[in-house]
């Protein structure tokens, strides 16, 4: 299947943000916006939902904490309790203060790494992945808005020109 999209190129983040708002106001669907740096407010202007990366980090952190508590209990209390420096390992609760550093490190370890992996998976970035920005200038100083076209595009074109696009191209996109 192939469909047509309009690629509108901008050279300023504020102009782009304004354009996104105007295009949205004119009831057009914005497929994607490629920017060289995070443009603050762009996600809300495009109507993107809040990301849940922070929530995943919290859950992964809890997982790490639970995992650390489990293996500390298994190793130090259950499997082979030792009497270290006259401080015998009788129960998890009594030994817990000595475990705090490991509990903390494992919480951070799990939260950080699993969150980053989730981010990479969700955003589809990993080694050998091919880049998908349609114009190489979008990692330099240009901002590209991709809008699907159905039927006549002259009105949309005029709208984009009015918003300050410096280049407007219609691209056949094959899926």
């Amino acid at each position: 299947m192939s469909s047509k999209v309009i690629h509108a190129l901008y050279d300023d983040d504020d102009v782009l943000l304004n354009a996104v708002k105007e295009v949205k106001a004119a009831d057009h669907h914005i497929e994607e916006v490629f920017t060289p740096f995070p443009v603050h407010g762009l996600d809300t202007a495009m109507g993107l939902e809040r990301t849940r990366m922070g929530v995943t980090a919290f859950l992964y952190g809890l997982t790490g904490l639970a995992f650390a508590a489990w293996f500390l209990n298994l190793i130090m209390i259950q499997d082979w309790p030792q009497n270290i420096g006259g401080k015998p390992s009788f129960s998890f609760a009594e030994n817990m203060p000595a475990f705090v550093p490991i509990l903390f490190e494992m919480t951070v370890f799990f939260a950080a790494h699993l969150m980053v992996i989730t981010f990479y998976m969700r955003s589809k970035i990993w080694p050998f992945k091919k880049a998908e920005n349609p114009d190489p200038r979008t990692t330099d100083d240009k901002f590209l808005m991709e809008i699907p076209v159905e039927g006549d595009s002259t009105a949309l074109r005029a709208l984009l020109e009015k918003t300050g696009a410096i280049e407007i191209n219609i691209i056949e996109k094959s899926h």
């Binding site: 994607e32 916006v33 490629f34 920017t35 060289p36 740096f37 995070p38 443009v39 762009l42 996600d43 495009m46 993107l48 990301t51 990366m53 981010f119 990479y120 969700r122 955003s123 589809k124 970035i125 990993w126 080694p127 050998f128 992945k129 091919k130 880049a131 998908e132 920005n133 979008t138 990692t139």
Partner: peptide
């Protein structure tokens, strides 16, 4: 660069 493309959603997550 892991195929970084700079989508708005990517930046939001980033």
């Amino acid at each position: 660069s892991f195929g970084w493309s700079g989508r708005a959603k990517d930046w939001q997550r980033f």
